[in-house]
Every structure is written in C-alpha cells, then in structure tokens.
C-alpha cells in the first residue's frame, strides 16, 4: 500500500475515533449534561471516596460524633432514595461530622 494511502486511511480512522468519542461524550461535550450535587450519608463513618460506601436518604440525620456523617457527590443521575451515588459519581468533599442515623 502506498504511503499516502496509509496516511489518508489513518486520518480517516482518526476522524472516526474523534467522531465516535464525541458521540459517546455528546452530553458532556456541550454542557448539556445535568449534573447533580447532593449530600450522601457515609455508611462506614469515614470520608471514603468509594460511592458504594454512601447512601442517599432524604429522611436521614446526623448525631453528634467525631466520625464523618455525610459528603457531597456529583452525579449525572438524580439521587434515588436508599441508593448509592450513581452515574459517573465524583466525590466533591463537603463532608460533615457526625454519625448517620437512618
């Protein structure tokens, strides 16, 4: 195969890669994606960065202690009662001291 053909094919595949990436990231690319910042209660009382260690509870509260009660997570899916942060969860800190009381 001639070199110019290789480069042309390479550029075509490169354009496809960027197009495909733009397609799968379309919502974030142009700022159309809705991001949710919500406070989630820590199940283990630490400022863990693992989403599975947190739960969203509208009726939850914090009792006074030196542990970590809640933290703010940013998600692309609206918080669901009783669920962990879902939808590309990002730990946003905003921790509050205390112990989670369901």
């Amino acid at each position: 195969m001639k070199n110019f053909k290789k480069i042309a094919l390479g550029l075509m595949v490169g354009a496809m890669a960027i197009g495909f990436s733009a397609f799968t990231n379309a919502k974030t690319s142009f700022g159309h994606k809705t991001l949710y910042n919500a406070s989630y209660y820590s199940l283990d009382g630490t400022a863990s960065h693992s989403a599975s260690d947190y739960v969203y509870d509208e009726n939850g509260s914090c009792t006074s202690s030196t542990k970590i009660c809640s933290a703010v997570w940013q998600t692309t899916i609206a918080p669901v009662q009783g669920d962990a942060p879902a939808g590309s969860p990002m730990f946003e800190n905003g921790t509050e001291p205390g112990t989670y009381k369901p």
Partner: peptide
C-alpha cells in the same frame, strides 16, 4: 490503526 483509534478516542474525551 486500532491502537491509534483507541488513543484518539480516549484522548478526545479527556480533553473535552
């Protein structure tokens, strides 16, 4: 081409 596709695909999303 496959390797280039993978890298451009991921690089674009990291930039954007």
């Amino acid at each position: 081409l496959i390797c280039m596709f993978l890298f451009l695909y991921t690089a674009y999303s990291k930039f954007i």
